[in-house]
Design a protein around this nucleic acid. Structure first.
Lengths: 219, 219
DNA sequence: TCACGTACCGGACTCTAGTCCGGTTCTCGT
DNA sequence: ACGAGAACCGGACTAGAGTCCGGTACGTGA
């Protein structure tokens, strides 16, 4: 593929608008020495510090000042590198998000290609739900952000929306675009948190019902 | 300006936790002289000032300090009376929210009682969508609020969730509770704003597709 | 090796939501 | 009518996200 440097989206760029997930490339070139050494070092420091603080106190209890201080870096550096709080959370999720995306695009059926679209859709719902549940705190932050509809404006949302819409269309569902958005809305971090944490329902039960919802949306 | 001076639920109480919509009562007792005269006067001033400012500059561009200053009131008074920004927005929507609720509970079919549950459900989706679209800015504020899942914690959400779940159950849908939440998620202000404002789709088309989604969720 | 320009650094600053509490004023009971 | 005290008033205060810009140090070209 093209040496598309969009890949370093998670490495140097201030993340123009939450475009953390590259639309295609997954493996990374590992080179692209474009940036400055101190910049890369600071980025790594910030990620390490954030991960440590988040693990120690919980994501919500950590302020951006905390992260900057712990990383030995100014707030300007922090915000230039990650854009905002949501960007920092996305960067921390980057590896796993890429892996999940790879599994959907190139992995084994039924999540990956090869299975009928309706089965892939159900597999996707289960996997996405699990992803959200497994990284709830970080995903919550990454889907937040200022302004209304922050979640709907991120690049990763567009990617998944397109994937789901395509599966729905392929499976013969009407209004695939709208239904993809309804389905992703049901899988949004806020909603998942509500079910699992606030209400305290067992994850398996919720996931199964959402899979049934996906099937219902096919007709 | 509205004759009604705030009505009981929204009149004195600091709105314990977004319980603006009473679960049953719609007509107001009209008595309950519990409060103080100056408190009521200040409340009215705040509502008037907020409405004027919101109309003039748009909801998002008005800060709570603006409202307090324009109302000739301290911030303490503002926050005691309405809890937070979302509470103020809810109070401004109160009349119409009550009217809508009354139409659903006691109004003519198919929105009100008398029609088959599936028809009522579709009527509800169309009416709720329209409500959200007609008061988008205020609803957006009222569904926001600090912390994740603010929308899911409000009393009005619980009310509608219950209503929709009941209709779904009555119509024979499986997992009525979960599906009610999925449906309301699709009708959330953020999502509606995304379709209508960001993407620019015509309201009628979106509403029709959501009605179809509701029907799909019945089986 | 060295000078140059650019990209980056960092912390002081702004902006706004929401809290607190000393002082005031209205209502109720007598 | 009047005293007592609860309820309310308002603005100073806190906290935290995100911005700005003068200064710095890194990479590049000669």
């Amino acid at each position: 593929m093209i040496e598309r440097n969009g890949l370093q989206s998670g490495s140097q760029d201030p993340a123009p608008e939450g475009a953390l997930l590259p639309v295609v490339q997954v493996g990374r070139p590992a080179d692209v020495p474009r940036g400055r050494a101190d910049a890369a070092r600071n980025r790594a420091r910030v990620l390490d510090a954030a991960q440590a603080l988040f693990a120690e106190r919980g994501v919500q209890a950590v302020t951006m000042d905390d992260v900057a201080r712990a990383a030995g870096v100014g707030k300007g550096t922090l915000y230039r590198g990650f854009g905002d709080r949501a960007g920092l959370a996305m960067a921390l999720l980057d590896d796993r998000a890429r892996a999940f995306q790879a599994a959907v695009l190139d992995g084994p059926a039924p999540l990956g290609p090869g299975a009928p679209a309706d089965d892939r859709l159900v597999a996707f719902v289960l996997a996405y739900f699990r992803f959200q549940a497994d990284h709830l705190e970080l995903v919550l932050e990454s889907e937040a952000g200022r302004g209304p509809g922050a979640r709907l404006a991120k690049g990763s949302y567009r990617f998944w929306r397109q994937h789901v819409a395509w599966l729905l269309q392929e499976a013969g569902a009407p209004h695939a675009g709208t239904r993809a958005e309804v389905l992703l809305g049901a899988l949004a971090a806020d909603q998942v948190r509500h079910w699992l944490v606030v209400v305290g329902r067992p994850a398996d039960a919720v996931a199964a019902e959402l899979a049934a919802v996906a099937r219902s949306l096919l007709r």
